[in-house]
Design a protein around this nucleic acid. Structure first.
Length: 579
RNA sequence: GUGCCCGUAGCUCAGCUGGAUAGAGCGUUGGUUUCCGGAGCCAAAGGCCGUGCGUUCAAAUCGCGCCGGGCACGCCA
């Protein structure tokens, strides 16, 4: 819970009680900053319950509060809103507390949970493309937010390495090299380039060529049954893919704690199918092994979970369920969060029901959560494609964003004396911030238009605007040769508005954590940067003769910088030394 | 067919567990530089919140219908 709000709430609860109402009120930042700092609407809610005039209730509460010294004023407005204006010292006290706190007084959960977050989801042989971007960017931010709140979090890339796509790759490789590559021949070399050519072609062909598809299914089955040559080839392809993919994730500042995949649970899956057939949870249907998960009160068609296909191979229904068991057994997971494109919502509903049917969930533990994010569309409103109709590779996207960053840095001419490598580093930091902020500033469920021009624009509500603002603070503090005083005092509307905005970062964080919504802290960070710029233009810190005032303003600048850096840390971007 | 999501300013989007005058960015128009980095700041114009009915003291927000758009629905992932 956010402390300053809790303190304020305690005061209000006591006042409501003294007025004869035993309630737990809600206090929040005011919708009308011209009238108040905080508001409370509970008199309106109470009015209905107790059948009294809302304004009369509010007035009764106000009477109880008049002796409180923390308020400049309290008023009852409109139908019964309680508007509270706080003393400057009250706001300054909490701002000073934040200044002295490494974690900026951000909330900590009472009961930390071991949490696994499953994002990433790349596949063997497929280079990362823009479709993987959202999962990685959002997942990374959510992971960091949950971790900051005091939970033990493990991020798993969960590699797609065990389904039919493996058989398709093998069948495709066989075609390309006229035979399955023989790894004992040391001259054999398969590159990421080879894989990324073979797979799409094989996938396409399988849709019209039944013989080819059958062959791919056979290879999949043989691989899963333990064919040594295929297992060797599988490992080779997987290693090549992991190697290529991890560079992209590094560039984006995305770090997975685990690089597990579907294949890791194969033996566990086979064992659990056997047991569950015994207990009758899994039944045979049309040659396949399934779990019926439809319920009588279902309003929609609920297909069964397909644990094993009729040819004896397994797919991602099975591996996803076995992975839940594994995360409980081996990682002691109390909470598992999945992130995918929302088109997979049904799949996860099926998997969760399957896991429950198998008894993996006890008293709601682990808590299984699915976050389906919106699709990334082109300007035509259809799933994003490059100009020639292909899929944009993430690698190329990162490169173009970086180039755009470099161009801007050079145009601005600020780091001209910097080495070429430093300029490139700045360009990447700026480009990644542009990309991530553009993605995270909207709610995750929103479909959004992927517009490279808008992504790489550096004015307005963007990552670079926030970076630029923070860099100027660094420059200012360096010039002053001081980070200011240990306490913050407020002198005017500009520093007051900024201090209030910074305090509310705590609320934004708590809200973002509760709702697993990074966009809430993104919008708040923009507001903070914006308020700082207003303050910066209004208060000429270096020219201020009053030493105490100057030191307090420097302290406020330090606090703003700390807050933006904390924000950057939470969504996985960096504030450059200069830009 | 069944289920889910969406429709808010010229454009891209917030706001949706009901509350005061519906917000932001871009774009447009105007102002701002003897001054800490102007990638900035200040301001203006711009909206039957798809539509109809209902619930309520109060609806962009809740319920139902309709119109328009998107997505998913057993051997792909």
């Amino acid at each position: 819970m956010v402390r300053y709000l809790q303190d304020l709430k305690n005061i209000l609860n006591a006042a409501f009680k003294a007025a004869g109402f035993d309630v737990d009120v809600i206090v929040r930042a005011s919708d009308r900053p011209d009238l108040s700092d905080f508001q409370c609407n509970d008199a309106l809610k109470l009015a209905k319950q107790v059948g009294q005039n809302p304004r009369a209730i509010a007035e009764a509460v106000k009477t109880q509060l008049d002796s409180e010294s923390v308020f400049i004023s309290i008023s009852v407005d409109g139908p019964g809103f309680l508007n509270m204006k706080m003393q400057d010292a009250w706001l300054a006290k909490y701002a000073t507390d934040m200044l002295g706190s490494d974690r900026l007084d951000l909330m900590v959960v009472d009961h930390p949970q071991k949490t696994v977050i499953d994002y990433g989801g790349p596949n063997v042989a497929k280079p990362l493309h823009v479709g993987h971007l959202r999962s990685a960017v959002i997942g990374e931010a959510i992971k960091r937010i949950i971790r900051m709140a005091g939970n033990d979090v493990i991020g798993d890339v969960h590699f797609g390495d065990w389904g039919l796509q493996m058989g398709l790759i093998f069948a495709g490789l066989e075609e390309k090299f006229n035979a399955l590559p023989n790894l004992s021949d040391k001259s054999v070399r398969i590159t990421m380039q080879d894989l990324s050519e073979v797979y799409p072609a094989a996938s396409l062909r399988s849709k019209t060529d039944d013989v080819f598809l059958e062959k791919a299914r056979d290879y999949t089955k043989q691989l899963q049954d333990g064919d040594l040559a295929l297992r060797g080839l599988w490992k080779y392809c997987r290693d090549v893919s992991v190697n290529a993919i991890s560079q992209n994730y590094d560039d984006l500042n995305i770090k997975f704690d685990l690089w597990m995949g579907e294949a890791d649970v194969h033996d566990r899956l086979i064992a659990l199918i056997k047991n569950a057939v015994h207990s009758g949870v899994i039944v045979e249907d049309d040659g396949a092994m399934i779990i019926n998960i439809a319920r009588e009160d279902d309003k929609k068609n609920m297909p069964p979970v397909l644990m094993m296909k009729s040819n004896g191979s397994v797919g991602y229904h099975g591996t996803d369920i076995a992975t839940i068991e594994q995360r409980i057994d081996e990682l002691r997971a109390q909470r598992i969060i999945y992130l995918t494109d929302k088109r997979q919502a049904l799949h996860f509903e099926q998997v969760f029901r399957g896991a429950e049917a198998l008894g993996f969930v006890n008293n709601g533990v682990p808590k299984l959560e699915y976050i389906g994010f919106g699709t990334m569309n082109g300007k035509d409103g259809k799933p994003f494609k490059t100009r020639d109709g292909g899929i944009l590779r993430l690698e190329d996207l990162i490169d173009s964003v970086k180039q755009s960053g470099l161009k801007k840095v050079k145009e601005a001419g600020v780091a001209q004396d910097a080495s070429e490598s430093e300029q490139e580093k700045i360009a990447l930091q700026v480009g990644v911030a542009a990309l991530k902020f553009a993605d995270l500033m909207n709610p995750v469920t929103t479909d959004y238009v992927f517009d490279l021009d808008a992504f790489t624009r550096f004015d307005g509500k963007t990552g670079p605007y926030i970076q630029y603002t923070a860099v100027r603070m660094q420059s200012l503090l360096a010039k002053a040769g001081s980070t200011g005083s240990d306490t913050i005092t407020l002198y005017n509307d500009a520093d007051r508005a900024l201090a209030k905005e910074i305090l509310s970062f705590q609320e934004a964080f708590a809200d973002a954590y509760d709702k697993l919504s990074p966009h809430i802290i993104c919008l708040k960070a923009y507001e903070i940067a914006s308020k700082f710029n207003a303050f910066y233009h209004h208060c000429h810190i270096m020219k201020e003769d009053d030493q105490a005032k100057r030191d307090s303003w420097l302290a406020l600048t330090s606090l703003t910088l700390k807050t933006l850096k904390k924000f950057a840390e939470l969504i996985g971007i960096e504030i450059p030394e200069r830009m």
